[in-house]
C-alpha cells in the first residue's frame, strides 16, 4: 500500500520509493528510504498534503509524493491522536 493510505497515527516501514527524476531524488535525499520507519501524523483540512514524521524530522508531502512511497504498516501500531 502507499503512504497516502495510512491512517492518522499509524506507523509503517517504507518498502519502496517509486518514480523517477527530481521528485524521487528529493525523497531519497530526505532519508525516505526502504526500511525507514515513519508515522502518519495528520492530513491537511483540505485533504492534502499529508504530514509525516521520520526520525527527528516532520515533513509535508503532496499526494503525488505520498503515493510514490510504498509502505508496510507495523502491526498494532495505531496510536490514536487527540
Amino acid at each position: 500500500m502507499t503512504l497516502l493510505e495510512l491512517n492518522i497515527g499509524q506507523r509503517a516501514t517504507i518498502t519502496d520509493v517509486l518514480g523517477t527524476g527530481p521528485v524521487r531524488q528529493r525523497l531519497l535525499d530526505m532519508g525516505l528510504l526502504p526500511a525507514s520507519e515513519i508515522i502518519m501524523e495528520r492530513i491537511a483540512p483540505t485533504g492534502a498534503p499529508v504530514w509525516i514524521r521520520l526520525e527527528a524530522m516532520q515533513l509535508a508531502l503532496r499526494r503525488n509524493e505520498a503515493t510514490s512511497i510504498m509502505v508496510e504498516p507495523l502491526a498494532s501500531s495505531t496510536e490514536v491522536q487527540a
Binding site: 527524476g21 527530481p22 521528485v23 531524488q25 528529493r26 525523497l27 530526505m30 525516505l32 498534503p49 504530514w51 524530522m57 516532520q58 515533513l59 509535508a60 508531502l61 503532496r62 503525488n64 509524493e65
Partner: peptide, 10 residues
C-alpha cells in the same frame, strides 16, 4: 516542466 518535488520540512 516536471513538477518540482514538494517535500517540505516543518
Amino acid at each position: 516542466g516536471a513538477e518540482a518535488p514538494f517535500v517540505m520540512e516543518l
